[in-house]
Each structure stands twice: as structure tokens, then as C-alpha cells.
Design a protein around this nucleic acid. Structure first.
Lengths: 141, 141
DNA sequence: ATATTTGCAAATTCTTTGCAACTTA
DNA sequence: TAAGTTGCAAAGAATTTGCAAATAT
């Protein structure tokens, strides 16, 4: 709850992490898009705006943001990880089209509730739920 | 339905694939365990029984078995893929303990039904559902 | 000032591939 | 014996890491 309101800046400040130039750029780009992106795509977005940040820093910052709960890592396909910020879209799931690679988000409080209930019944303290539906979208040909 | 009954041998025969010595060993090991394993763990299991199979062949055969629907690949953690055979436990989901790494399987026809309905409503022809619940198991300390 | 962070390039890790030798049907 | 398969070692792809130089507090 407090966490929800914590800004990235506050988060960094609270742990002796520094708000550097590269981090600022990355954070800005991460929150500027509502799409999923890979580490490399993010670097490309930045590069396109004339902002150069090294791959290593992109990875390091993304992982920092994941730890802070600002960003989530998704395994949409094998290969590279995809990321997305968790700003106003927590707890959603993904439909992934194997043809187009397109990803659609959806929510299902009822399915989620059921899943949490089952997990709890097994003595599991749920941390996060990853639900990916692979298939073919009629629309996205 | 017919598929359910098809043996690996029949599958191979039907497509000019050969039932070789290495494949036989791998298939045997895959169905001998009801646990998840990585390509390397499988190679280790074989090696422990004095059966040497190259990593390349393990990967190739595992991917063959996945194509045939006999084995499923799971992304339990980032890093290496985990596999499991689909013999009598289709359509189950996973609870993954971040502490112990232990994996518990569970089923939820109701959640599954809900998920499929939503997917279909979005014009999605569902191919497979991957549901992973990450958390901490009280039991597996 | 001084501890953190960056960028680079090298290192890792997992998986795939090319190809000559070897099996299987 | 013709076509599929293997093993090896090299290639790939994605991510991580060591370290000296740069930067934030």
C-alpha cells in the first residue's frame, strides 16, 4: 500500500542507490511505453532518441526496477525476457499469438481468486502469478 | 484422442524418424521419472547409469518429444528449461517455491475453463496454458 | 571525498548447428 | 545402401561480470 505510492526516486534514495543520468533515461523510457519490450528493444528506443546507454546498464537497471516492483519480467517466448512496467496494470495475464507474436493482456479476477485459494490450501504464500495462454489469434493474422 | 494412445514408437515410425539407441535411452529415462528435469539433469541421470548420450542429442530428442506432445517444456526459472513428460498429467499447473525451488503440481478445471472462455471471447484459439504461481511453501522450508 | 555506477569487453550459461562418421530401416 | 542420427566442437544468443574511469551525494 505504501509501496504502491513509492516512486522510483524514493525507492532509490531509500537504499543508497543513485539516480544517475542513465537510470533516469531508462526509467523514463520504461514508463513511457505501455507495451512489452526486451532489454535490447529498450536500448534501441533510447538510442533512437539519441540517448546511448550500454546494454549492461540496461540490464542492471531493469533488474533493479524488478526488485523494486516497478517492472515485471515476462517469459513470453524462450530467448529473451520481456519487461513491462507495473503502473496501473497489476495482476493481468497474457494471450500470446504464436503466429504474430502479438500479446494481448487480460484480467480474470475469478480465475485469479480460484488459483490463490488453491495455492493457499496447499500452504503456499503466493507471491506472483504468471499465466500465459499460447495460441493463435484470429484477428492477428 | 487417437493422439493420446499413440506411443512414441508409433510417432517416430509415422514420420521416418528412427528409434535409435540414444533415443531409446532418453525416452526411457524421461518416462521413468515423474519429476521435472533439465536437459543437463537428464544427461546426468543417464550418465549415472553408465549411459552416455551427448548433450546435443539430449536437446534434439527432448525437442522431438515436445513436438510429438509427449513432453512439455516448462519455464520454472530463468536459465535452463525444465521438462516433464505428459503421461497422465496433462493440463496441470505449477506452484513454485522460491525458497526451496520445489515444484508442486495442481489442477484447476474451473480456472482453466474460465481462462479458455476468455481467450475464446477474444478470438483466440488456445493451444496451451502455462500457469505458474511463485511463492513460498510453508511446508518446504 | 568516497562510495556507487558506468561502459567496455571478456566471460558465462544454455541451446543450437555444421559436418564427418555411424546407424537404422 | 540410402536416409536419418550421433557426437564433437564451434557457433549463437542472452545475460552477467570484472575493472578502471566517470559520476552522484
Amino acid at each position: 500500500m505504501k509501496k504502491e505510492l513509492e516512486t522510483v526516486e524514493q525507492y532509490l534514495k531509500g537504499r543508497d542507490f543513485r539516480l544517475t543520468q542513465p537510470r533516469r533515461k531508462i526509467i523514463e523510457a520504461v514508463f513511457a511505453t505501455h507495451d512489452h519490450f526486451t532489454a535490447d528493444e529498450l536500448r534501441a528506443m533510447l538510442s533512437q532518441k539519441g540517448e546511448k546507454v550500454s546494454t549492461a546498464t540496461v540490464y542492471r537497471t531493469l533488474s533493479l526496477l524488478c526488485d523494486g516492483g516497478f517492472v515485471e519480467a515476462l517469459d513470453l517466448d524462450r530467448g529473451q525476457l520481456h519487461y513491462e512496467h507495473v503502473l496501473g496494470h497489476k495482476n493481468h495475464f497474457h494471450l500470446i499469438c504464436s503466429d504474430s507474436g502479438k500479446v494481448i493482456e487480460f484480467r480474470s479476477p475469478s480465475a485469479e481468486k480460484t488459483i490463490r485459494r488453491i495455492a493457499r490450501a496447499r500452504g503456499f504464500e503466493v507471491n506472483s502469478i504468471s499465466l500465459r495462454v499460447f495460441g493463435r489469434g484470429r484477428a492477428c493474422k
